[in-house]
Simulated assay, not measured.
Amino acid sequence: MSSGDKKQSGLARVLGSASAGVCEIGVFHPIDTITKRMMSNQTRVTTASKLNQVIFRDMAEAPIGKRLLSLYPGLGYAACYKILQRVYKYGGQPFVKEYLTSNYKENFDNMFGTHTGKAMLSATAGSIIGIGEVFLLPLDVMKIKSQTNPEAFKGRGFLKIMQDEGLNNLYKGWGWTVARNIPGSFALFGGNTFAKEYIFHLKDHNSASMAQNFGASICGACASLIVSAPLDVVKTRIQNKNFDSQETGWTIVKNMMKQEGVTSFFKGLTPKLLTTGPKLVFSFAMAQTLIPAFDRALAPKPKRND
């Protein structure tokens, strides 16, 4: 049974999602570095000088130009990871959603009602696609370590690190990543669809204007970041350790509770909402706008009858 949304081609989904990833990297990589460094910081930040040290590390006293350049570590890893992630997530979720729509739409409608059922179906498809995102974890690990713990690389390239460390170290924290992605992706796609249903009253969500896509993406992104924040902090702290660290996620949770308190699980949430939030909104809205645009551009032109 159809959901009412026009289907796009697979190529359009890949091109639109990849383009959104490229735009996101170009604009937001320095902001992402700042967020990751603040999330990894385990000390109190009470002065501007301390904040400067947390953000710029050993470049805290360098000229402003060098300080800004220091916010671009791991750009290659970030580009590979982000583009593949966006293609997989934004391009893949519609396929899962279409499968669920074809086979389970009536179940969702009967359980939640037509409009809420559509949002829940989209959210469930997001959760499923979020689980598979764990396969990209090695690139995410490389990106985060290069941003927060560059000495872990010691001049080694990706292939050398793969050989030296093995998959076990590169997939360290995979369970916490899955635990974060399930509610995070559920809220992202569910909140987005909910907004298109109840705020913009769209019958075909793929016909949304850019402004509507940005508005719906804000709802989804905020819900996603708030829901996934505690697990994201634990995941980041696992990944920013040296490769030989044996500290588990539960050990990190226990130490955070003991030494920093419950509020530590929401460290970096405010800057994340102010920085990662716009990044996620930007890429999600761009993907939702560009995918239909590529689909229209790639559609066969009708033959003219001369």
Rank of each mutant, 00 (worst) to 15 (best):
G74C: 08
Q246G: 13
T148W: 03
Q85W: 05
Y104W: 14
T276S: 09
A79H: 05
K241T: 07
K66A: 14
G268F: 02
L269G: 02
S3A: 13
A152R: 02
K89S: 15
A293W: 09
C219M: 09
I131T: 14
T33F: 07
T251V: 08
R304P: 06
T35D: 03
V87I: 07
P300L: 09
A195N: 09
I131P: 00
R304S: 14
D140S: 13
L269K: 01
E98N: 12
A287Q: 01
M39Q: 11
I144N: 05
L121S: 05
T43R: 14
I83V: 15
R13D: 11
S207N: 12
S40L: 07
L69N: 10
I64P: 02
D244H: 04
I131W: 05
E165Q: 12
V27A: 08
D140Q: 12
D5V: 11
G190H: 06
K143P: 01
W176D: 07
E98F: 10
G21E: 06
A221C: 07
G220Y: 00
L15W: 06
F158L: 15
I128M: 14
R67W: 05
G215Y: 03
E61Y: 10
T148L: 11
Q42S: 15
N110T: 07
N181Y: 07
F153M: 13
A221G: 04
G76A: 07
L188W: 02
A195E: 12
G74Q: 01
D204I: 14
I252D: 02
N242V: 06
A285M: 05
L69F: 13
I252P: 08
T43V: 08
G157F: 05
K154V: 09
S49T: 15
C222K: 01
G130W: 03
P292V: 06
A62C: 11
S224W: 00
S264G: 08
N305F: 13
T47G: 08
L280P: 00
T270H: 05
R67F: 03
Q8D: 13
E133Q: 09
D164L: 14
R156I: 04
K145F: 05
S217R: 00
K7G: 07
I252F: 08
T236M: 06
M38T: 02
A123H: 03
A20F: 02
Q288V: 13
K196I: 13
R296I: 11
F108P: 06
P138I: 07
N103R: 13
E165W: 08
S40M: 06
N103P: 03
K303D: 11
T177M: 14
N103W: 07
G261I: 04
T148M: 11
L231C: 11
G157I: 08
M120K: 08
G220W: 00
A285T: 04
S146R: 06
Q163H: 15
R13V: 11
Y90H: 09
E151A: 13
Q85K: 02
K267A: 04
A119N: 03
V233I: 12
T101C: 12
S264F: 04
T270G: 08
G173K: 02
C80M: 09
M162A: 10
D306V: 08
M162Q: 10
G261N: 04
Q212Y: 05
Y99R: 08
Y171W: 12
G130N: 04
E197W: 00
F28P: 05
Y88P: 00
F200R: 02
